[in-house]
Design a protein around this nucleic acid. Structure first.
Lengths: 162, 162
DNA sequence: TATTGTTATACTCTATAACTATA
DNA sequence: TATAGTTATAGAGTATAACAATA
């Protein structure tokens, strides 16, 4: 896992100036590190980023449907099914039939689900705080705000003009 | 592709406040939209984000090795092989043996590669500018800078302490 | 007809171990 | 022995079409 130090090679420092205008490039690189880190943090709880996110959203929004959840997570409905299956099989959530519309399920967390959610959440927060140690506070706050704005902006364009 | 308008459901607005502290959540959502958009933009050129990024970096850094490129792209060396294979088969780049160290290839773009690079680059820039229309300039600049800082920060921690 | 959840499926991206050829 | 590139492979994530049940 030790990142090798470059030896004598044709190019000593990779020039990525042309790519510096592209969000995708920077976001992917940053996201890569964050996600692989988050994956490790969640491993002891047997959660992945997707199952963790789903669990948090269900805990915070008891009764929401799979369609709504998929929409909030920006994934397709079919891909959510296995995630919900997994959480349900582990008795962390339940699928309750909605009386008034029997097509839907109302997703709710169990006590075990809420407990795991709490523990995983704490671990993740602690780990992330450690990751961001050394970054000035304003940068961190900016980042969150800008990313959130960006998503709303992009999502509106995406959903609206297509 | 039309995003369905929510009907009457148990939860009218999904509360994601608990997740609002997590970089991963916001980055993923924003990245999702950007990448799916970028994918469409690059489709006419028969490029994906990975092949596009590799091409740009090779054009800008003639002679770099696959290890260096993989490192710059934050992917594992084995995963780069098929990407380079694809670009080589399409005669967009060549693998030149390095005389002084015959283990390595010096990657170089062909004329066709540089031409495609230019066209794809223009399309991507135009498309991205359109995507970001309406966002104030400072936000955009901040975003780029913060993401770049973040990557360096995380990468140092990641590579250094592991 | 339209929507919710589902199955099946294919494609892309990612990660690891083990190999070869060179150094 | 160590590194560059490679192969094979397994696991995640993503996207689409088509279906049953329900509205």
């Amino acid at each position: 896992m030790t990142r090798a130090v470059p030896v004598s090679v044709p190019v000593s420092h990779v020039n990525d100036e042309t790519l510096s205008d592209f969000l995708g490039y920077h976001m992917k690189r940053a996201f890569n590190v964050i996600q692989s880190d988050l994956t490790e943090t969640l491993r002891p709880f047997e959660l992945r980023m997707l199952t963790f996110t789903a669990l948090v959203l269900i805990v915070d929004n008891p009764g929401l449907s799979q369609s709504q959840l998929a929409d909030a997570m920006d994934i397709e409905r079919p891909n959510l099914v296995v995630i919900i299956d997994e959480l349900e099989q582990r008795r962390l959530i339940v699928r309750d039939r909605v009386r008034t519309d029997r097509r839907m399920y109302a997703l709710k967390a169990t006590l075990a689900g809420r407990r795991l959610n709490k523990k995983a959440l704490e671990a993740t927060k602690a780990h992330e705080a450690k990751l961001l140690t050394g970054l000035d506070v304003q940068t961190t706050n900016n980042l969150m705000k800008v990313l959130s704005n960006l998503h709303h902006h992009l999502n509106n364009r995406h959903g609206g003009s297509d």
